[in-house]
Design a protein around this nucleic acid. Structure first.
Length: 741
DNA sequence: AGCACGCCGACT
DNA sequence: GTCGGCGTGCTC
């Protein structure tokens, strides 16, 4: 609609007017003028105040805008081709409005860092490429045999550099003529390397998998949401593969979104070797230029598969046919800091706007997604059979309430670990806490080492010999004596990965103990090293946090011991149980692949907790039904939609006072609209009230009616815009919040 | 977010 | 007298 030219004014000096989005926390775009038309999505340089900024054309004016300010000109158009297409702009606008995030900042989070700078795209490449850009040639090239030949050659190939064409006997003049006729053009986008693959053997699918693939493929060019629920080992990846294959075969592109795991390469290799198509992976480990260059390749319309994390949801892909979101329950699809948006919502919206199918895959779907299937908004595709033939893990709950403080494992657990190692198999000890011990306490006066800038205890780290705050960057030396009573008797309280590792070395000196957490995998390649060690299949014990559960696959790992999951059972966060069960099932799925049955032991002080019963029976659906009933009864998501208004200040009362007046304003508004069904909470402190010396508070809004909720958020937003963010006060609206802050 | 403007304290 | 502290407000 807005692709139309915005020719304005009269005669000799036509001017064109545009809305430009810039990378600043502003909720509007700015109006600028230019002497020539500029395509939507182009990068430009504009003067804002006293500085120049990179901006993106997000709208064209069809008539001269009537404004009460003078419109400045655009300084420069950076590239000769647009960076994003209209679809990306539309998605960015929707996301900006739905999540109450500034349009410019939001659009820029979708771009690779390299493109946020004012450097023109051609600085990425030393040489341009030529490609065809016109579908019909017959009439135009009837009498130009050489040109037709050159055109055909280019038409059959990806963008080709001039030197390659000259080497193939094409004359420079011929190309020049074709350019003049507008049949071919120069592009800065390099050709996607095409992979040759001999292993194109068709994959065998079982009936359930076939049905799933078919359901999605039948939805080609129509909007539809699918939940692909498949237990571990049921072959979700094979289904993805076949879906990709099908869309690729009709010349379309597939976007495959994955959580933030460093192991997308396995998936990419698998896709690459089985589909004869370029697979482009976009993740944060790539160097700036490399990432930008790969991202630019997604502007091409040839069939390809893009594997990417969160922000890849908005890469251009002119020929997109299907979106797949793997591990859809994973919270890393929601950006929790800075610009807050949820990739799943964006993916669904994009599919809706374009009319395509979107597939959400998980063994343990989020309760939001499950509810959508119950309410028939999503189609539920189930994979209930383990394609690999492996059995479900044996589960066992061990009572840890009778253990001494210095005992980690129950006698039963210990003997099971011993037996597993003796039969030359591997053991995983899962504890979701890094460091040596979560606290250091004085035996005499019970003083606890706390962070000076946050309301949390410091974690003791043995490897760095320091006490670290896990909420800010603070590191402190370990005191020799209690700073309060001068007692020399300070002891570590509780367990983290380091301490478990330490204890296991004493108990099992003959076996390698491998620790895998954020600290032990900081160096590049260390994760790969750990993986390779595990893949050697010799007996060992892996001690790890959350990160072991994600995407790793160790065939000889047959026993998993889960420690310290009790806080998930009785947490303030209403989603803690859901997340815990998802983690437990995912960790359990790590053990017992292939022909070896797996075993999972959970040590807990609450052996009768109902959640553990659901785990024992591997009954996620049963848990979901019960939990959903509970959530419905007390008005929690997914039945009520939530939004948090968060405010923080460096002075302890500023944010609180300001939020209180917003709370008042909202409640007054509600009193004047008695029919509204929106709940407004009191102004309350965040779960951790002080972090890095910022005092943090929030108001929670909730409503069964999303429209009404958004209406109230608009009211709140108007209020907030008038209270400017200063260096000492920050605020943000968090739609569909996932954390307690 | 940047950046300028503007209004109060300690200094060559 | 003025240099600079940061509180406030604006950016087409």
């Amino acid at each position: 609609m807005s692709e139309q030219t915005s020719l304005l004014l009269t005669s000799d000096n036509p001017l064109y007017f545009f809305e430009i989005a810039i990378n600043r926390p502003l909720f509007q775009s700015f109006t600028y003028a230019f002497k020539k038309d500029i395509p939507m999505g182009s990068r430009v340089i504009v003067t804002v105040g006293n500085s120049t900024e990179v901006g993106i054309v997000i709208e064209k004016h069809l008539i001269t805008p009537e404004v009460d300010f003078s419109i400045n000109p655009i300084d420069e158009v950076i590239d000769d081709t647009p960076t994003v297409n209209s679809e990306v702009i539309e998605i960015a606008k929707w996301t900006s409005q739905y999540f109450f995030q500034p349009i410019g900042e939001l659009l820029f989070t979708f771009l690779p860092n390299y493109l946020k700078q004012a450097k023109p795209l051609n600085s990425l490449y030393t040489e341009g490429y030529l490609r065809t850009n016109h579908p019909q040639t017959e009439s135009l090239l009837k009498n130009a045999k050489k040109q037709q030949e050159a055109f055909n050659l280019l038409n059959e190939n990806a963008p080709t550099s001039k030197s390659t064409l000259l080497a193939q006997g094409i004359k420079s003049n011929t190309l020049l003529e074709l350019c003049k006729k507008g049949l071919i053009e120069k592009t800065l986008i390099p050709p996607t390397p095409s992979y040759t693959s001999e292993s194109n053997a068709p994959l065998k699918l079982n009936q359930e998998q076939t049905n799933a693939v078919q359901a999605v493929v039948e939805h080609k060019d129509q909007f539809g949401c699918f939940l692909l629920e498949g237990i571990t080992g049921s072959g979700k990846t094979e289904v993805y593969l076949h879906i990709c294959k099908s869309f690729l075969s009709v010349g379309q592109q597939v976007l495959l979104l994955v959580p933030e795991i460093g192991l997308t390469s396995q998936l990419a290799e698998r896709l690459e070797s089985q589909l004869n198509t370029p697979v482009i992976t976009l993740h944060s480990n790539l160097a700036n230029k490399e990432r930008a260059s790969r991202w630019l390749q997604t502007q091409q319309s040839q069939p390809m598969v893009i594997i990417g994390t969160r922000s890849a949801v908005a890469c251009p892909l002119p020929n997109l046919g299907c979106i797949i979101l793997d591990e859809e329950h994973d919270s890393s699809f929601k950006q929790q800091e800075g610009i807050r948006y949820h990739s799943r919502s964006v993916a669904i919206k994009r599919a809706q706007l374009r009319g395509l199918p979107v597939v959400l895959g998980s063994a343990t779907p989020s309760l939001e997604t499950l509810t959508n299937t119950y309410q028939q908004r999503f189609q539920h595709l189930r994979l209930t059979k383990r394609a690999t033939g492996a059995r479900l893990p044996k589960t066992q709950i061990q009572d840890a309430s009778t253990l001494n403080p210095d005992q980690i494992f129950t006698a039963d657990t210990l003997s099971t670990i011993k037996a597993t190692l003796a039969s030359k198999q591997q053991v995983l000890v899962f504890i979701n806490r890094r460091g040596f011990a979560p606290t250091l306490q004085c035996n005499q006066c019970h003083w606890v080492a706390e962070c000076e800038q946050c309301d949390v205890a410091l974690t003791l780290h043995q490897s760095t010999n320091s006490m670290d705050c896990h909420h800010c960057e603070a590191k402190h030396p370990i005191p020799k004596r209690c700073p309060k009573c001068n007692s020399p008797y300070l002891s570590p309280l509780g367990y983290g990965t380091e301490r478990i590792e330490h204890e296991l070395i004493q108990t099992f000196p003959d076996f390698p103990i491998i620790r895998m957490d954020r600290d032990s995998t900081q160096n590049k390649g260390s994760l790969e090293k750990i993986r390779n060690q595990l893949l050697e299949d010799s007996p060992c014990i892996l001690v790890g946090t959350q990160m072991v559960a994600k995407g790793h696959n160790f065939p000889n790992l047959t026993l998993t011991v889960v420690l310290n999951c009790d806080n998930g059972l009785y947490s303030q966060d209403f989603r803690a149980k859901e997340t815990l069960l998802q983690n437990l099932i995912q960790v359990g799925g790590r053990s017992g692949r292939a022909d070896k049955p797996g075993q999972v032991i959970i040590q807990t002080s609450f052996v009768d907790h109902p959640l553990l019963k659901f785990f024992e029976q591997q009954d996620y659906q049963g848990f979901a039904k019960e939990e959903l009933t509970h959530r419905k009864n007390i008005g929690l998501p997914p039945y009520h939609h939530q939004a948090a208004i968060r405010m923080q200040s460096l002075m302890d009362n500023k944010a609180f006072t300001q939020l209180m007046s917003l709370e008042q304003a909202l409640k007054t508004y509600k009193t004047n609209h008695p029919g509204d069904n929106v709940e407004i909470s009191l102004t309350m402190p965040a779960a951790i009230e002080r972090k890095s010396n910022w005092y943090r508070y929030l108001i929670m809004l909730s409503s069964p009616d999303r429209k009404q909720l958004h209406h109230y958020l608009n009211v709140a937003h108007h209020f907030l815009i008038q209270t400017p963010r200063t260096r000492k006060l920050k605020w943000v609206i968090d739609v569909d919040p996932l954390d307690t802050w």
